[in-house]
Amino acid sequence: MSKLRVNAFSLSLDGYGAGPDQSLENPLGVGGPALHKWAFSTRTFRKMFGQEGGETGVDEDFAARSFENVGAWILGRNMFGPIRGEWPDDSWKGWWGDNPPYHVPTFVLTHYKRDPIVMEGGTTFYFVTDGIHSAIEQAKAAASGKDVRVGGGISTIRQYLQEKLIDDMHVAISPVLLGRGENLFAGLDMLNLGYQCSEQVATALATHVVIKRA
Rank of each mutant, 00 (worst) to 15 (best):
residue 1 M to L: 13
residue 2 S to T: 15
residue 5 R to C: 11
residue 6 V to F: 00
residue 13 L to G: 04
residue 13 L to S: 11
residue 15 G to E: 04
residue 16 Y to I: 04
residue 20 P to R: 10
residue 26 N to R: 12
residue 27 P to H: 01
residue 28 L to Q: 14
residue 29 G to F: 01
residue 31 G to K: 01
residue 31 G to Y: 00
residue 32 G to H: 04
residue 39 A to Q: 05
residue 40 F to Y: 12
residue 47 K to I: 11
residue 48 M to P: 04
residue 49 F to G: 08
residue 55 E to S: 14
residue 58 V to M: 10
residue 59 D to T: 08
residue 65 R to L: 13
residue 70 V to T: 07
residue 70 V to L: 04
residue 72 A to K: 03
residue 87 W to V: 07
residue 87 W to T: 10
residue 91 S to R: 14
residue 92 W to T: 08
residue 94 G to S: 08
residue 103 H to G: 04
residue 105 P to Q: 00
residue 105 P to Y: 05
residue 106 T to S: 11
residue 111 H to E: 14
residue 115 D to Y: 06
residue 116 P to M: 07
residue 118 V to H: 10
residue 118 V to T: 14
residue 119 M to E: 11
residue 120 E to M: 09
residue 125 F to M: 04
residue 125 F to W: 09
residue 125 F to P: 06
residue 129 T to C: 06
residue 131 G to C: 07
residue 131 G to R: 07
residue 132 I to A: 12
residue 132 I to Y: 14
residue 134 S to W: 06
residue 137 E to Y: 13
residue 137 E to R: 15
residue 138 Q to R: 15
residue 143 A to M: 10
residue 144 S to M: 13
residue 146 K to T: 07
residue 147 D to G: 07
residue 147 D to P: 08
residue 149 R to P: 03
residue 150 V to I: 15
residue 154 I to R: 02
residue 155 S to R: 12
residue 156 T to Y: 00
residue 161 L to D: 01
residue 162 Q to T: 13
residue 164 K to M: 12
residue 166 I to K: 09
residue 166 I to T: 09
residue 170 H to I: 13
residue 171 V to S: 10
residue 174 S to R: 02
residue 174 S to A: 15
residue 174 S to P: 08
residue 175 P to I: 00
residue 176 V to R: 02
residue 181 G to H: 05
residue 182 E to N: 08
residue 184 L to S: 01
residue 185 F to C: 03
residue 185 F to K: 06
residue 187 G to I: 05
residue 188 L to V: 11
residue 190 M to S: 02
residue 190 M to W: 10
residue 192 N to M: 11
residue 198 S to T: 15
residue 200 Q to C: 11
residue 200 Q to F: 15
residue 201 V to R: 13
residue 203 T to C: 09
residue 204 A to L: 12
residue 211 I to A: 01
residue 213 R to Q: 14
residue 213 R to F: 10
